[in-house]
Amino acid sequence: MVDEQMIRAAYDAIAGTASGPERVRARIEARTRVHRQRRMLLVGAGALGTAAAATAVGVPLAIRDRPRVQGPAPGGLSSSAPVPEPVEVPLLFAPRWLPDGIAEQFRNVKIVTAGGADKPAGGTRNWLLPGVRYANDGTGLEGVMFSVGERIDDNSGQPIRVGAVTGTLRVTDSSYVEWQPPGAPNLLVSVYGLPNATETALRIARSVARTAATTAVSMRSPWVPDRFAGFTLASAYPTADGWCQSLTHTSTNHRENCTIFARTGRAPQGSAYQVRRPDGVTLYILADPPGIISNATPLSREEATRMLAEVVCIAPDLSWAGGR
């Protein structure tokens, strides 16, 4: 048994070795002075450059300020014509065996949008125990999760045979089986809060096969700022008062992302921007949780307003919800 008190004592001792703030502060101030001087030089050069360019070509500066509109998004998800028809996106793989007593409560699909590729790239499905409702807050979900195209990148686990390939089994409070069939994306099964989780995860993993099944995406963003070009994650799940859908647009390097939600009923607390439609659907964009802000460049008010104004969304087909 690891002694928690000993761990705390160790951390207190480590904290006691921290440098004093004086030296760090002096270094920060010196560095800030250098940055400020460099910025002043750049601002001067930039002003000269802008004036020269405007004079040379005679182009009104306002044109360059106009927001750039991204081309039609892959899979038709961001077609500029807001046609309220769902787009079918392939699931690619699906388990053929699942334990009794769980039902599907969540789906998302990933679509590569970089370079106009419009390519399905997997997604995630959750089957949960009765009474457990999918929550978008990362809380523990008792049941089964199956992901296509996701990876646990931590070099842990032990080798395990899944069909013709060797995968990885990790057992913590959940059991994870991860493997990659030849020519296929990475696949991941996790089981949390079910009896015999490891055996169950392995049996599910060994039942996974390619599928021609698709899922309907009933939401699209006709306009997305260029910096989010990379891939789009389209999610849908039933809620207590109807449904919730979202589109998360993420840059290829994963640094920039933004999510726009649509749901029946009211927007949750913490929405930075929201629009209540006459049909009872609320469109919204969440603010960063209190005290936590991602490193992504936040949406400007102008960008958020335009995205909310242009997003197209109809009620999702959730006929899969509650099933297997």
């Binding site: 928690e4 761990i7 705390r8 951390y11 207190d12 904290a15 807050d137 990362g138 809380t139 523990g140 646990i152 931590d154 842990s156 990790r170 913590t172 409070d173 959940s174 994870y176 996790s190 949390y192 949780p289 936590i292 991602s294």
Partner: peptide, 25 residues
């Protein structure tokens, strides 16, 4: 142990799921 954060708070901070936090722990 030093900050006394819950798994959910750590997950928020690290940008991962609480299950991943529990796995690391």
């Amino acid at each position: 142990y030093y900050e006394g954060l819950s798994d959910e708070q750590i997950a928020d901070l690290l940008g991962c799921r609480p299950a991943t936090v529990r796995s690391h722990a």
